[in-house]
Structure formats: C-alpha cells, structure tokens
Design a protein around this nucleic acid. Sequence first.
DNA 1: TAAATTTGTTAATTTATACTTGACAATAAA
DNA 2: TTTATTGTCAAGTATAAATTAACAAATTTA
Lengths: 183, 183
Amino acid sequence: MKIVGVNIKRLREDQGLTLRALAKKLGISASFLSQVESGKASPSLATLKSISDALTTTVGSLVGEEQKIDDNPIVRLSERKHVQEAGKGINMYLLTSRDPNKQMEPLLFKLKEGAISGAASYKHFGQEFVMVLRGYIEITLNEIVYTLRKGDSIYFNSSVPHAFKNIGKGESEAIWVITPPTF
Amino acid sequence: MKIVGVNIKRLREDQGLTLRALAKKLGISASFLSQVESGKASPSLATLKSISDALTTTVGSLVGEEQKIDDNPIVRLSERKHVQEAGKGINMYLLTSRDPNKQMEPLLFKLKEGAISGAASYKHFGQEFVMVLRGYIEITLNEIVYTLRKGDSIYFNSSVPHAFKNIGKGESEAIWVITPPTF
DNA sequence: TAAATTTGTTAATTTATACTTGACAATAAA
DNA sequence: TTTATTGTCAAGTATAAATTAACAAATTTA
C-alpha cells in the first residue's frame, strides 16, 4: 500500500501543509507521518480515516481507487460491443471500452417485445441509472412498480431487488449506467 | 470504523461464504475475521485491501464511502429540473434528484444551434460519460477533436481539459453522466 | 436420536507493527 | 553566524493486529 503515502504527500503539499502542521492537526507525530508518506509504515484504519478527512478526500482516493483513465474514449454507434443476453430478448451493448479504472459502466439495453428480466437482486454495492430512449419499460424496485416511457429516468441502488420488462409494442431501448463496472 | 465489519459481513453472507471459507481465502484466522465483523478488532490496511479484493468490492465501499440512497427514484420527462446555463444556448436538466450519496450525476444537455462551451478543465477527480441523442456535437479533449452523432458515446476524465459545441443544424441533445455529483 | 461436522463467538496469548521520542543533516531565515 | 524549520532515521514503547484453542449452537450424517 505504498501508494497511500504518495497520495497523502501529494495532497499535503498541494495544500501547502508541512509535515509537522498536518501531524499536529491529526494528533500524531510528524515522524510517523513521514514514515507513512515514504511507505516505511502503514497507518491504522482509524488514522487513515482522519488523514483523509483532514485532507478533505476519501479513504478510497488515498488507496488509489479513483484512478486515471486515458484510452480511446469513443465508441461509435456502429462499434458497440454486444455483451450478453440478460434474459430472453434482452440485449446489452457496451457504450465504453472495458476499463477497470472506470467508475461507471454505461450500457445500452434493447428489449424485444415482451422481454422480461429474471427477478434479480444483484448484491454488489453500486448504483444504477436508467433512462428510456424508446418504448415502455416497467421496472420493479422492492415490489414497487414504475412504468417509464421515453425520457423518463430512474436511479436506484443495485442492492435493492429489481426486475424489469418491456411492456410496449415492439422493441424498447434504454440507457443503463451502473457503478461500479461489472463487465 | 464499526461500519467496516458490518459491510464485510453483509457481503460475505451475500456471496454465500462462511467465516472460515473467507478467512482461508484471505490467509487469516476465522476468529480474527469474526472479531473484525463484530467491530471488536480493526484490520490492518493491507488486510482490509485483501478483504475488499476477495469480496470484489473496494476499500472505499467497505468504509462506507458509497452510501445508500432511497428517495423517490424517478424523474419524469415533464419534471426535469433545469440546472443552469453552462454557456450561451446550453441548457442542463437533472435526470435524478439531488442526493450527495449518489455516485453519478446524470444530466440532459440541450445545445442550441451553434452553442459552444467555455474551454474548461474542471479540476475535481471524476469521470464523464456522454452519449448523443440528437444532432451533432463536437467534443475536444486535450486538443483532440471528436465529432459525435446520434448514438455515439465518449468517456473521459474530468481532469483533462475539455470543451464542446453543437455543430449540427438546429438543437442537439446528449445524455451526460458525471461522477461524482457536483450539482 | 445420537454422533459427527460445521457454524460463529470468546478469552487468553503471542506477535507484529503502529506510533513516539529524540537526535540528525539540510535548508532557509534572522 | 545563530536560530528556526524543513524532512528523515534509529531505537524504543505500547498498542492492537492476529493466533490458538476451546466453546455452545446449529446442521448434517448415520
């Protein structure tokens, strides 16, 4: 976890803080903070949390979970990759290239007439955003049924049991952005 | 940091793992894992990282930096809130209700003919996803120009200098999802 | 029904390491 | 020069991370 120290040092210097100033703010010794920054020691979780607070960032950031991405950024309509059928008549297409450093995973869902998802409660932490582009889609969240038509959008936690089906005539289409990426 | 244990336990159980099974996978004792889950002990940063890996999640998640959301999840086409003009002829609409716990911020951009953004390099960490719904939009990333038409999408880091303009005849429209929320 | 596993939890130790103290050279200010 | 102030290091202490082993309760097997 050497990256932690590097990040702390960078943020501290960006904010014009000396080693001793930050250490005092945290109630730890400057010496120890120095060791942490150089990777010679590792802070306890509690200390790391207070460091992230003092630097107005997050533990996740400090451990390097919010990274850079910089590949080919674009995906053309014609180049979308088909991912999988999440049920019969349900097709998903990637709207960005696969990249573990991405925080979001934008997908295009195409639902054939009558297509219906398995009632699923995906158990990973994460959130989902859906906006209907074409047709009518019914989404059930925790037993509550929402009917969405073109232009309507919905946002929910991946952990809540959710299912959906196409209740329109013909194909329906929606943008589906989930976090974190799973494909 | 008691929340850490709670989250670990929930994820472990969700994945059908026993205390001993996960502990073995991690190379630590089941006993210690039990203490961690109940908040009686706190794992080292290194151990926490291996736990988050084993549970296919992140340290940030485990320490509770990715929180629950559970308000009214839906935003109808007719109910979209106008946010601000990010330049002349550029209108943004919220596609979800404001919520600091959300990881994403989905917006609808409407660009009048000829509308052009100020060249901006937003300096917060974060990422952006854009998909054009209507018209033609030109996006410049780091001096590189991309022309997007209906159905094309792009994904980039908020930290890279970016600007955009509507180069189509008439209004153009795009879905714009940014992370983390700023509005 | 009882024996045998397997579950999660706790108390008592050990061991590792988080953290401190104090001194150091290097730089910058007085 | 003197006096602070910077970051770093070696050595020591003390905290708590992690283990061992034994436990009752629940499941499984016979």
